[in-house]
Write a protein that binds this DNA or RNA. Structure first.
Length: 415
RNA sequence: CGGAGUGUAGUGUAACGGCUAACAUUCUCGCUUUGGGAGCGAGCGACUCCGGGUUCGAAUCCCGGCACUCCGACCA
């Protein structure tokens, strides 16, 4: 893409109504736009990052038999009443409610267990139908009492939610364990694997414990108690004798430290609760009616994006991991648009995603913008570089640059 | 939802109760410049969040509302 065609502009200063680093950087660089507290639009660059994150998740989920679908946001109350989640006391912090013109009450879904369980009643009848792993990327609405920290806690946000529909607890548990590995792969690919911990946490209503994936991050809302060497982590809220006993943790054997972290994913066992309430059952070999055993698995996509921006940034701007970067290469033309366009075409033919800065701007501004936007590789074409024999090649996260010939560029980028 | 703070050109800031609301930046035009947000000049851009009140006079003080930020509570 040519930057002269990109409608977003960068800005030197962050708006004063944003304090969080992720929102400041993402707004300054033109990735997102704030509509209101906790509600952000994704601009072209931001959408590219979001889609890259989605694709990494999608690839991993499809590999284990996940089937992508998309449910509705608008929900009628009947199914939610069956699970007792239409309650008015859930208005604070959870429900956005609305209604049809005929006054039928509706809610904007904050999660989709009920909706999907109900759908499954039309498609599951035999043990032969199970297990099923269905997921979606869906906008969730949560009427948070206090949105905060930019993209970290929004009122409208994209979530990947996968649900497993299993024959019994055993089958569910096997999948649950498998998902721990899948999530690890996902966070590794997203570039935050080395600071993301599988974390013991409160199980909520349906089981005593659940697991979260917590990423070390100063802007996070949680406090992680963890042993880096042994890879054992517990949410500080749940760091107690009960946990030690249940997980066979002898505190003396560990070197626990505390650090702030953000919950980027969670995996829950739901058990039979939803199936029983909504009537999702199957017939086993003996013809007996058995409730389906369920689990749910979430990842907040914009939150992951925010955490990456928080972690991978310096005083000049963002430093995107290659896997999620909006483009692989930022090609800056310093008054050499003809030559630059030649290189641009060549890279595009190789399938390398390039943002070509062909704008009529001063070098300083182009450099500053490039650092702010944070594309992993920067290539400068200038009279100076051409005299030296090619183009200047620099990684965003390194100080050094080198001159390489245009012919060597492709090889260099596929290293 | 409790507490605190803040609302002034697109953005960031300034202005004692008193001149035509100032400066920087963005943007437009001209000239110069071309490796780290350059220089000179000219110009556009604000019912000072909304509504009341006090006052000869309100961006400024008071009341109400709304919005935003932070702390807390909440957070399948």
């Amino acid at each position: 893409m040519k930057q002269s065609q990109l409608f977003t502009k960068t800005r030197k200063e962050a708006p004063k109504d944003e304090v969080s680093k992720n929102a400041q950087l993402l707004i300054r660089a033109g990735f997102i736009d704030k509509e209101m507290a906790g509600v952000y639009s994704f601009l072209p660059l931001g959408l590219r990052v979001l889609e890259n994150i989605k694709n990494i998740i999608r690839e991993e989920l499809n590999a284990i038999g996940g089937q992508e679908m998309k449910m509705t946001t608008l929900q009628t109350k009947d199914v939610w009443e069956k699970t007792d989640r239409w309650r008015e006391d859930l208005d604070d912090g959870i429900w956005f409610r609305t209604h049809l013109n005929n006054e039928t009450e509706l809610g904007l879904a904050f999660t989709h267990e009920e909706a999907l369980t109900k759908i499954m009643t039309d498609h599951v009848s035999s043990y032969k139908d199970l297990p099923i792993y269905a997921y979606q990327f869906q906008t969730k609405f949560r009427n948070e009492l206090r949105a905060k920290s930019g993209l970290l806690r929004g009122r409208e946000f994209l979530m990947k939610d996968l649900y497993d529909f299993s024959l019994d607890e055993k089958q569910h548990k096997e999948f649950y364990e498998k998902m721990k590995g899948v999530y690890k792969n996902i966070f590794d690919k997203l570039g935050i694997g080395d600071r993301t911990y599988l974390t013991i946490s409160n199980g909520g209503t349906f089981s005593k414990y659940s697991f979260e994936f917590q990423t070390l991050c100063d802007a996070g809302e949680d406090i992680l108690v963890y042993d880096k060497e042994k890879g054992v982590a517990v949410n500080k809220d749940d760091f107690n004798d009960d946990v030690f006993a249940d997980f066979n943790i002898n505190k003396g054997d560990y070197n626990f430290i505390e650090e702030k972290s953000a919950e980027v994913g969670d995996i829950y066992t739901l058990g039979e609760k939803y199936a029983k309430a909504i009537g999702l059952t199957y017939k086993n070999e003996k013809g007996e009616e058995i409730p389906v055993y369920m689990g749910s698995y979430g990842i907040g996509v914009p939150r992951v994006m925010a955490v990456i921006a928080e972690i991978f940034s310096d005083e000049k701007g963002i430093i995107w991991p290659e896997s999620v970067a909006p483009f692989k290469v930022h090609l800056l033309s310093l008054n050499q648009n003809e030559k630059a366009e030649e290189i641009y075409n060549k890279l595009n033919e190789e399938g390398i995603e390039v943002l070509l800065d062909d704008r009529d701007k001063k070098p300083g501004e182009k450099f500053a913008d490039s650092d702010l936007i944070g594309i992993p590789y920067r290539i400068v074409v200038s009279s100076k570089s051409l005299e030296a024999g090619g183009v200047e090649f620099k990684k965003r996260n390194l100080e050094e640059s080198e001159i390489i010939s245009v012919d060597d560029l492709i090889g260099k980028l596929s290293e």
